[in-house]
């Protein structure tokens, strides 16, 4: 409960500014994001390529 009163003044646009321990969470989110982009845009797997074909061309990812 004390945490709440202490973080309240640090809030920016409605939520707390991340502190050191949040960096791990941000790194997780970034790696997750990169992983999804890799699968959709870059995986050389033939199956994924075939499913993603039109989307890759539409996004101007290098394809083929």
């Amino acid at each position: 409960m004390t945490t709440r009163t202490q973080t309240a003044p640090m809030q920016t646009a409605g939520h707390a500014v991340p502190k050191g321990r949040d960096l791990a969470g941000l790194a997780f989110a970034a790696i997750l994001g990169l992983g999804l982009i890799f699968v959709a845009g870059f995986s050389h797997s033939q199956t994924i390529h075939d499913v993603a074909h039109d989307q890759r061309h539409s996004m101007a990812f290098p394809c083929h």
Partner: peptide
Amino acid sequence: GTLAMSLVSWIGFALLLVVGFALAARAG
């Protein structure tokens, strides 16, 4: 398939964008 892969890649880009927001918030 195009729809599925579009969702996958745009969720990926969105996550990176929001991580950028969070890092910017750290810098004020």
